[in-house]
Nucleic acid binder design. Structure first.
Lengths: 223, 223
DNA sequence: CAATTAATTAAACACACGTTTAAATTGGTC
DNA sequence: GACCAATTTAAACGTGTGTTTAATTAATTG
């Protein structure tokens, strides 16, 4: 026979009931665990059992704190994702109207955002870029006015004054900018491996990206 | 009481048994249906029931023709995906050693591949770019020697001769090329919507991309 | 035309999922 | 110190999954 209930020893195989001592904010721990799973395997594939286990609790806790899987996702968006966008937007607001300064500010802003939030590229690929991604609607409705539309508008104004290459489309330039910043971070595990490019650090990536945006393949060379 | 078996009428709610007349190649229809589902909702989420239903058969047919879900995926890869890569590789082989011709050939090759295989960008995002994508290993082991590594090698040789911008890294230039070609196609549903860019067709995208690669933001302008 | 092979379905299997409910335990309040 | 609210677990529910098996029908072969 095994002792059925209430061992005074802590931590090992607890039963139901409020724990003694008050554990550190479980809600925050669930948000962190959820974000980890979202980035690693995607929102749809992230089961509540996995998230709860990662946070050291049972899946019923998700229901207790958030109500449902979808409301958990909504909380992660508001409390973890949107603040990153807000920082990027402030950076753009601070940059002037010179198109090169704007572009440089965006490129550096993405680099900084990724450095501070390593989950960002994975989450973006799976939940925004993928066709059934759970955050695509978020991008369209709430993020795009703050960053890509703002950027496109200011670039279009600069181009009208002849401040950069007239053969570019300012809207497509924003697309190109994302393809040259967020995408390389998302693909880094691949290209570092197939090119044996462990020597390429983020600074080298930054220099390459800015050089390409400045002069394309036609820049001055050391010939 | 309902008639239990063997109505002579065709098509409506068949029971078991080999169908009369011999239906057109079911294996091919299953491959097509699988690829459709893979592109639309992802390989992991594409249930055999959905694929089978899309092909007009029962899920047991997948077992009959392929053995398992994984072997179905392998067949789709060999018979639908790899041929597209082979075409792109032949294009690159046909291009000369001039780096601009190489880059133009790659850009046009991706455009052509997407035009002929509209499922390509979605599949690439979800199954290669996503961290747990089912085709990432395929890219690393079988595709990368045929396209990105080949391209990087030839670009590095051209750069050593001073044939283009020395501030670029030839390996990262391959990453940039993909970020400027496949990525815009994958993101097209997004940017066409947030920029109201229904006027931007594939030709405009092609011109923009080549202009950016040629001169960056610094090209001649109409000022 | 009988026997065999090919093609197909229906049904069942064990498993994982999100959710709900009831019970258990602790912390705070009067 | 008794009561109520807060926090947590275990267990069960129904649904969808990949797979397997048996049965059924048509085509092919001798």
């Amino acid at each position: 026979m095994q002792v059925p209930v209430s061992k005074p020893r802590a931590s090992a195989r607890r039963g139901p009931g409020r724990p003694a001592g008050g554990v550190a904010d479980q809600r925050e721990r669930l948000l962190d665990a959820a974000l980890r799973s979202y980035a690693k395997i995607g929102i749809a594939a992230a089961s509540l059992r996995r998230i709860a286990s990662d946070a050291g609790v049972t899946p019923a806790m998700v229901h207790y704190y958030f109500g449902s899987k979808e409301q958990l996702r909504a909380a992660v968006v508001e409390e973890r994702v949107m603040p990153v966008i807000a920082v990027l937007r402030e950076r753009l607001d601070a940059a002037g109207n010179d198109p090169r300064a704007l572009v440089t500010s965006f490129v550096r802003g993405v680099h900084a955002a990724v450095a501070d939030n390593p989950w960002l590229p994975s989450l973006w690929v799976r939940e925004v870029l993928s066709e059934t991604g759970a955050l695509r609607d978020l991008l369209v409705t709430r993020i795009s006015p703050q960053v890509p539309q703002l950027l496109a508008k200011r670039l279009a104004a600069a181009q009208k004054q002849g401040d950069f290459n007239a053969d570019l489309d300012p809207r497509l330039l924003v697309v190109s900018l994302i393809g040259l910043t967020l995408f390389p971070f998302a693909a880094a595990p691949i290209w570092r491996r197939i090119f044996a490019a462990a020597d390429v650090d983020n600074d080298a990536l930054l220099r390459h990206t800015l050089a390409l945006l400045d002069h394309g393949m036609g820049g001055l060379n050391a010939h």
